[in-house]
Design a protein around this nucleic acid. Structure first.
Length: 267
DNA sequence: GCTATTTGACCGGC
DNA sequence: GCCGGTCAAATAGC
């Protein structure tokens, strides 16, 4: 990642320190450990807004802005001047519990399908909740010739501290004739911490952004205990739509299978 | 009833 | 003075 990141999957650094810190390290949603663990500012309202420029931040372009391995809680949305899309503001769900100052801004950048999002991360996570990918849900694409069924396998590792949730499900759905029958192999995982992990391997003809062999996106901003991410245009779950080309329904959520990509921003 | 999201307002930075 | 980031009350969903 350090060099020539694939289209739609790149990092830019607003903070030179961040850029330096990244160095040759593989791109992860959060740079090499602790580099950004700069002493957090006071959490008072005023201090929290002070010195924006001093805050470590780095930018990532992705098609799946919500799959970055951490739990995020939305705290604001704002229309930005000169931007056709609103900017969404998220902060770490553990902000209060663990004084984690990590936050991110998500902004759609174009109308492409899938749309590209610019995600600006601020502060390294100090909550120590970086998830370890544990594929619990697996979406496998059968041989193209056999039909258009997608198998989703739900499972649980029970690795979470809240205890294991188990569910298994097989789902089949129709998919349009995919050119070249190149469908991504998607893996989704949920752990008992309400985190979701996703891994997706794309066929060769996928767009450059998605053709980086594989990507894994973990820790959906899982809607925490109650919701699934809300309905703010593109919820956590909506991000999945960019991983396939047809709609897949998880409960109330529908996904539009397509070439998804979240890059190697995970662990 | 609890928790997350929405949304308008506030306030700091530029 | 304008713009953008955050707060916090209101609202909605579970």
């Amino acid at each position: 990642m350090a060099s020539a990141p694939p289209k739609g999957e790149s990092f830019d650094f607003e903070d030179p320190r961040a850029q330096e810190a990244m160095g040759s390290a593989s791109a992860s949603c959060s740079p090499a450990g602790g580099v950004f663990g700069v002493s957090p500012p006071e959490s008072s309202r005023r201090d929290s807004r002070k010195r924006r420029k001093d805050r470590p931040s780095w930018i990532k372009h992705t098609f799946t802005p919500h799959f970055d391995g951490h739990l995020w809680r939305k705290y604001g949305q704002k229309n930005i001047k000169d931007s056709a899309f609103p900017r969404l503001y998220y902060r770490c769900s553990y902000r209060e519990d663990r004084q984690c100052l990590a936050s991110k801004l998500v902004q759609q950048e174009n109308h492409e399908d899938p749309p590209l999002f610019k995600v600006t991360y601020t502060y390294e996570h100090t909550c120590n909740t970086a998830p370890v990918p544990t594929p619990d849900v697996v979406a496998e694409l059968p041989a193209p010739a056999t039909g258009d069924a997608l198998l989703l396998r739900f499972d649980s590792t029970g690795a979470g501290h809240r205890g294991a949730h188990r569910m298994e499900q097989e789902r089949h759905y129709q998919q349009p004739a995919a050119p070249g029958s190149g469908w991504p192999s998607m893996m989704l995982s949920f752990d008992s911490n309400n985190r979701q992990h996703e891994q997706c391997t794309f066929p060769s003809e996928l767009p450059p952004a998605a053709s980086s062999s594989s990507f894994s996106t973990e820790g959906l901003p899982a809607p925490s205990s109650t919701t699934d991410g809300g309905d703010d245009g593109f919820s956590t779950w909506d991000s999945l739509r960019y991983g396939l080309n047809d709609h897949v329904h998880f409960g109330d959520h529908s996904y539009l299978p397509n070439s998804g990509n979240d890059g190697d921003d995970n662990y």
